[in-house]
């Protein structure tokens, strides 16, 4: 199913920097982000609002407004240098090789076009068929994403569908040209809890069946545990910790990850206080010179704010950007770090 490109990585980001430039200030939304994704792999990017998760995804498809954005670094998807693509090549990539599912199904669909036509449009754009064939394919896709009475829904306008159905339509649209990479930007956040699970299960099933690589952006650790192979934790535009989902969620090596885990509601929490991380994320216009999490970190040392902590690699793709990564203070079990 999947062609092998020269390197076996489907996505390679190297030193990705995204800055939003305006007259008043320059916002460093993404700072030196490097990551790789193999074909068929699911990577979850976790982080709170404003941590640069969605911006990184949009940079990957060059969806950010060109006039106000400065992207540097390297982005390669399926062997193509995304930052060098122009005009038609770029739009061939979008929706063809890489697709995206957005957070807000209520506003992400064009309100004055029938959903069938919106899907067919994507099919026709990439496969060069006529509207009739596009609609046939749209029907198949709606059935694939389990939209009930798909034939009737084909002629529906977005406002006639529920949030869950709209998100299924979005998924159908994203899958319409069998992309190699699916970017999902908090696709379940805006949905009801019961619908969230359904959509999540559907996405995981389709990802496996179609063998797509997927980058799944979320702030919900439960979702990440459910769907991810690997996890990258982002804070203030930087990846602060990566590793397999078991490693990162089971044995977090960055205080931010630990803080997030502690502030999550899970079983047997009744009567206990939820531990919130004190303070607020830093101002992206004026990032601190040292570790950007230092002001909120309870294990902070004097050297933390002197310089940006280096990436500490712990083998097997495990990384944490913390001076104490190899010897976390709060870890009584003290698993032997494999360096």
């Amino acid at each position: 199913m999947i062609e092998n490109s020269t390197s076996n990585a489907l996505v390679e980001l190297k030193d990705l920097n995204v800055k939003f430039v305006s007259r008043e200030a320059t916002v460093s939304a993404v700072n030196n982000v490097s990551l790789t994704l193999k074909a068929g792999e699911v990577l979850c990017i976790i982080g709170e609002s404003g941590s640069g998760k969605s911006v990184s995804m949009r940079a990957l498809m060059r969806l950010l407004p060109e006039r106000r954005t400065k992207i540097t670094g390297e982005i390669s998807v399926a062997g193509k240098n995304v930052l060098e693509l122009q005009g038609k090549e770029l739009s061939d990539l979008r929706g063809g090789t890489v697709s995206m599912i957005f957070q807000e199904p209520m506003t992400a669909l064009d309100p004055v076009y029938r959903v069938g036509d919106q899907i067919a449009e994507a099919v026709c754009r990439h496969e060069g068929c006529d509207r009739e064939m596009g609609l046939e394919r749209a029907l198949e896709l709606l059935e694939l994403v389990k939209v009930p009475s798909a034939e009737r829904r084909l002629k529906a306008y977005p406002h006639e569908l529920s949030g869950g159905l709209r998100q299924r339509v979005m998924i159908a649209m994203a899958l319409s040209c069998r992309p190699k990479l699916l970017l999902a930007d908090e696709p379940t956040t805006a949905l009801d809890a019961t619908v969230q699970i359904q959509v999540l299960i559907l996405l995981r099933k389709l990802q496996r069946e179609m063998g797509m690589g997927m980058i799944f952006v979320t702030h919900d650790l439960g979702v990440a545990a459910e769907i991810a192979d690997r996890v990258a934790v982002m804070y203030a535009g930087r990846i602060v910790e990566t590793g397999t989902v078991q490693e990162v969620l089971g044995d977090p090596r960055h205080p931010y990850t630990r803080g997030m885990l502690a502030s999550t509601v899970h079983g047997n929490m009744r009567g206990k206080d939820i531990e919130a991380i004190p303070g607020n994320p830093p101002d992206l216009r004026r990032l601190p010179t040292g570790c950007s999490f230092a002001p909120r970190c309870k294990d902070v040392t004097a050297s933390c704010s002197e310089a940006l902590p280096p990436e500490v690699f712990m083998g097997g793709g495990r990384m944490s950007r913390c001076l104490l990564a190899s010897a976390p203070p709060d870890e009584p079990k003290s698993m032997a770090p494999a360096i």
Partner: peptide, 11 residues
């Protein structure tokens, strides 16, 4: 928002 979707699907 939907304009971003249109661009994302390759129009």
């Amino acid at each position: 928002d939907f304009v971003e979707t249109l661009r994302a699907k390759g129009l």
